[in-house]
């Protein structure tokens, strides 16, 4: 049974179809919410809220206009932004502040900063740096690089113009590059390595 058939049945009140739709998209919805909010409890709550909205308004869904996931994503991103606004999350988490003071477990003996990053785990370092990027730019980066959306769709989700969405992605990347440069420099200092030149301009 395709998504369209499941949705058609779900719209007609078929409980099994509704449940199948929910279970098919739940993990993806939770993951996106988790990336945007960086909190499992909040992500679960927001994902559930988005599904409640979607199922209450299933009769309004038009498969000709967008996929079910795209429709659900609109509700999800909107709720994530509202949730964050309500909680007034700080752009710098306490975890990061405390972790910043800790030395790496095993400083590399090599003199290569990229090697330092590898040793620590590039993905982990990038993820931690992403946590420090300003929320608007982070949302844009996640929608761009996780969801792979064009600027036009990012703009629609973030209620801004495509140019503004492009600028947010760019600013996010600039922030990220700066943060990673600082991280690498910090690690190099702790390892007693003097970098010959800065990574960035």
């Amino acid at each position: 049974m395709t998504d369209v058939e499941i949705i058609a049945r779900a719209v007609n009140g078929n409980e099994a179809a509704q449940r199948a739709l929910y279970e098919a998209h739940y993990a993806a919805a939770f993951r996106l919410a988790y990336l945007l909010l960086q909190d499992a409890c909040d992500a679960e709550e927001v994902a559930q809220d988005a599904f409640v909205y979607v199922f209450r308004n299933l009769h309004r869904y038009d498969p000709q206009r967008a996929s079910f996931w795209a429709w659900l994503r609109v509700a999800l991103v909107s709720r994530c932004r509202n949730k964050r606004r309500r909680k007034q999350l700080s752009t710098v988490s306490l975890e990061m502040l405390t972790a910043a003071g800790e030395a790496p477990a095993d400083p590399t003996p090599a003199g290569d900063p990229a090697g330092l990053l590898e040793l620590r785990g590039t993905q982990q370092t990038v993820w931690e740096a992403l946590e420090q990027v300003s929320p608007g730019a982070r949302d844009a980066l996640i929608l761009r690089y996780y969801e792979g959306l064009p600027y036009k769709e990012i703009a629609a989700l973030l209620s801004c113009s495509p140019d503004a969405a492009r600028a947010r992605v760019a600013h996010g990347k600039v922030q990220l590059r700066r943060l990673l440069t600082e991280t690498v420099e910090g690690m190099a200092r702790e390892a007693g390595i003097v970098r010959p030149a800065e990574v960035g301009g």
Partner: peptide, 18 residues
């Protein structure tokens, strides 16, 4: 950096406690 962000986000999403 873009490639690293793609990988980091995919890994974080995969590791998310669903």
């Amino acid at each position: 950096l873009g490639e690293q962000v793609v990988d980091a986000l995919a890994a974080a999403a995969e590791a998310a406690p669903v």
